[in-house]
């Protein structure tokens, strides 16, 4: 067909191939330090939480009557509380509760928010309008009010707290999903899929979802943090996990009365919580740098 002049296609490609690779490489090579630090903290946390019962030096509810208010030391790493319970062991068990709460609440909010957001962004029109108005109204509640209302109606428990926080977090997840979906919808590869007459589930699962999930991972890390913190506030106020559970918020609340005599009872769970939150936030920020095309791919 074509008589290509003198430059044969293969020769042109010989120059093209290494070039494209060299432009692609630097993006892969640089892993942000935030991601490394965050991922290590989160990994350690997950491992200790999973092995808490094994690692903990004492059962979390074992009382040592003679060692009440023992300060941190070799025997009790983080001291003991007013019943002589080992604070460090309780911290380990508490990490299970906190992470469980964070993960369950986030899963619930993603379970509600992601399909709603994708549907709203994909269908636009009336469905979009209806979904977004409902989410707007949910967002117009001061965040804590909705949770307090739900928890006041029923007897508090970890699952209910997770459920309440999950519902509360669904609107922001839905909004983010929708805006990312809308962004992608204007992408021409979406139109190419429609020009092939692809079915809805293929478009949503194969074309959209792989592009949405990086942004969602970042958002999910924020939501886990939010759930952990709000869960702590709720148990602090007495509406979350009930004693004698080794919940961090509850431990801080109980220790308040002895804050002058034995500050470690309250301070230790706070430090544990701070480490958890910073670890997850760093992980999220690192992920954002690597994954979010809107921030990452600077020329």
């Amino acid at each position: 067909m074509l008589i290509c002049c003198t430059a044969s296609p293969t020769r042109a490609f010989a120059t093209a191939v290494p070039l494209s690779d060299s432009t692609a490489l630097p993006r892969r090579a640089s892993v942000p330090t935030a991601l490394i630090v965050g991922a290590s903290i989160v990994t350690i946390l997950l491992v200790t939480a999973a092995l808490a019962q094994v690692v903990a030096p004492y059962p979390f509810d074992q009382m040592h009557i003679r060692d009440r208010f023992a300060p941190p030391g070799l025997r009790y790493l983080a001291g003991t509380d007013e019943y002589g319970r080992d604070v460090f062991s309780r911290l380990l068990i508490g990490s299970q509760l906190s992470l469980l709460l964070g993960v369950i609440a986030t899963l619930i909010s993603m379970g509600i928010g992601v399909p709603l957001g994708m549907l709203a962004g994909y269908s636009r029109g009336l469905i979009d309008e209806a979904i977004m108005r409902v989410l707007d109204i949910m967002m117009a509640f001061p965040p804590i009010m909705l949770v307090l209302l739900i928890l006041a109606i029923t007897q508090p428990s970890l699952m209910k707290t997770a459920f309440a926080i999950g519902i509360l977090s669904a609107p922001p997840i839905g909004r983010v999903t929708r805006s990312v979906t809308l962004d992608l919808m204007s992408g021409e590869f979406m139109e190419a899929a429609r020009a092939r007459g692809e079915r809805l589930h293929y478009v949503l699962c194969r074309e959209l979802l792989p592009n949405v999930w990086p942004v969602l991972m970042v958002e999910a890390s924020l939501r886990v943090v939010f759930a952990v913190l709000l869960g702590a506030v709720l148990s602090f106020l007495g509406f979350g996990v009930q004693p004698p559970a080794a919940d961090w918020g509850l431990m801080i609340s109980n220790g308040r009365a002895f804050v002058e005599k034995a500050p470690w009872i309250s301070l230790a769970p706070g430090i544990a919580m701070g480490l958890t939150v910073i670890g997850i936030s760093l992980l999220g920020d690192g992920l954002r740098e690597v994954l979010d095309p809107r921030l990452g791919r600077r020329q």
Binding site: G187, E188, F189
Partner: peptide, 15 residues
């Protein structure tokens, strides 16, 4: 079928 203008978004970046 159709061929688009915007070479930046005509292919799904994840495929």
């Amino acid at each position: 079928q159709i061929v688009f203008q915007n070479v930046g978004s005509s292919l799904n970046p994840r495929l």
